[in-house]
């Protein structure tokens, strides 16, 4: 097993942040996706949506300044921001299913060659939290997955077919991991970028799915 350094979670988030267009309505999942808001390139305005019923979520509240009634979907306290609006859950999900969310960034347990997403249940646990992930998979215009390439046991999370219960079929557009940037295409998962110091062959060796590898694969640039 290769022991070359992999990208930090923050660097994965930085790479994802480059994908967010100016003016986009964006929903960020829990984990690495939450970090993305810290790295949006200067000059771009991104409007964050939260399933908790808040649009235009600002930064997190400072310690001691928390308002118990102002949280994001991860339960973190938000700072009150100008232009913020509040709405109930059915409207929050109307925004998602109605195609009003431009990009959703989600974590994953597995992503398949076809862009299938599994991120809500470990079968060993018997019970899983579905939350808003399935609605986002069905309704957001673009799904970007931000995750580690392999799990704790070193098993590839980029798979031929998902073995965990699915969140959505053929819903993922781009996968950013600590080893690579992968684009879901009709021909399969295309290796677009590799982590610095990694070769395409080394990334393939860490990946269960068979990657489509173009002639030139640049290193991830930030």
């Amino acid at each position: 097993m290769t022991t070359k350094p992999r990208l930090e979670r923050e660097v994965i988030a930085m790479r994802v942040a480059r994908e967010l267009p100016d003016g986009a309505y964006v929903n960020l999942g829990i984990g690495i996706p939450t970090l993305v808001s810290n790295y949006v390139p200067e000059g771009r305005v991104v409007i964050y949506h939260s399933e908790s019923g808040v649009l235009n979520c600002g930064p997190l509240a400072e310690e001691g300044e928390e308002d118990i009634d102002l949280i994001n979907a991860g339960g973190q306290f938000l700072k009150k921001a100008p232009g913020m609006s509040f709405f109930h859950s059915a409207d929050a999900f109307g925004m998602i299913r109605g195609g009003h969310i431009d990009v959703a960034v989600l974590g994953a347990l597995q992503v398949s060659e076809q862009g299938d997403l599994a991120n809500w249940m470990l079968p060993s646990r018997g019970i899983g939290n579905i939350g808003g992930a399935m609605d986002l998979a069905a309704g957001a215009k673009r799904i970007i997955v931000a995750m580690e390439h392999t799990d704790r046991d070193g098993k590839s999370k980029v798979v031929r077919r998902c073995t965990y219960p699915l969140t959505g079929r053929r819903c993922v557009d781009l996968v950013v991991t600590d080893l690579a940037v992968l684009k879901v295409t009709p021909a399969g998962l295309e290796l677009r970028e590799v982590a610095p110091g990694w070769t395409p062959a080394e990334v393939q060796a860490q990946t269960e799915a068979t990657l489509v590898i173009p002639r030139d694969v640049p290193e991830i640039a930030l």
């Binding site: 999900f93 808003g132 609605d135």
Partner: peptide
């Protein structure tokens, strides 16, 4: 409680639940 057979659990996607 589910493992002990004492509780029925119906998991529903959040947007479907609210709708």
């Amino acid at each position: 409680l589910y493992r002990q057979g004492k509780l029925e659990v119906e998991t529903v996607p959040q947007g479907t639940l609210s709708e």
